[in-house]
């Protein structure tokens, strides 16, 4: 199974990046996880030609080629960081690779709540008609106090949190397999994958 793990921040030092690196190593026997950065993407601004810049296209291709996507999001001001929202806007406005793509959401924060509000927002965002991702229900992996969560080798110190992630990840691989069976390749894929807010104006609510 091939997955893409998206680091939901442009910060140089990020425990969400650490969490994905841990997952990549720890679940290597179950899946190949490629870690994707969004820090070099430009800020989203509706391009007139509706063409994705090369870096966005590269991320989009990476997602398209994967069986599923893992988002690791920090929480800024009770929501996801602007830089992650910007990356999602690029994808929704240009290439729309997340349509019917299985998605797992994880998040790490230094506070005790572990990005609970950001994850709820991200779920609502990914379910918007412009994106149409298949976010795995029932699973919410919140890593609080994340600055103290990893040991020197980058492993989760708390055995309970590590076991919880093992269970969640196994559930996600099953979810990926299941969705592959129930969603025929082209069922939700629109002919025109591009979306525009003005299409809605013409009575084409997606």
């Amino acid at each position: 199974m091939k997955l893409v793990g998206i680091v939901g921040t442009n910060a140089t030092s990020s425990t969400n990046r650490q969490l994905l690196q841990y997952m990549k190593r720890h679940f290597a026997s179950q899946a190949t996880i490629e870690i994707a950065e969004i820090k070099d993407l430009p800020a989203f601004n509706e391009p007139e030609d509706r063409t994705a810049p090369a870096v966005v296209q590269a991320l989009s291709d990476q997602i398209a080629a994967a069986d599923g996507v893992i988002f690791a999001t920090p929480e800024y001001d009770h929501s996801i960081p602007a830089v992650l929202k910007s990356a999602i806007e690029w994808l929704s406005y240009t290439t729309r690779p997340l349509i019917s793509k299985p998605v797992m959401i994880v998040g790490a924060s230094n506070g005790s709540l572990g990005t609970s509000r950001a994850q709820a927002h991200l779920r609502q965002i990914l379910e918007a008609p412009e994106l149409k991702a298949l976010v795995m229900p029932n699973v919410e992996y919140l890593l609080g106090h994340s600055l103290q969560a990893f040991d020197e080798d980058g492993n989760l110190k708390d055995a309970t949190k590590a076991a919880e992630l093992d269970d969640d990840f196994t559930a996600f691989t099953a979810f990926v397999d299941l969705t592959a069976k129930i969603t025929p390749a082209n069922k939700f894929v629109e002919k025109n994958q591009q979306f525009s807010w003005s299409q809605v104006a013409n009575g084409r609510d997606l």
């Binding site: 800020a43 989203f44 001001d77 929501s79 960081p81 602007a82 929202k85 609502q124 918007a128 807010w197």
Partner: peptide, 20 residues
């Protein structure tokens, strides 16, 4: 605010992050 993907645009979120 407009609505992009069921939420506020990243540009608006970005200025709020700078202002916090």
């Amino acid at each position: 605010t407009p609505e992009h993907n069921h939420s506020i645009p990243s540009a608006l979120k970005s200025i709020i992050e700078w202002l916090s």
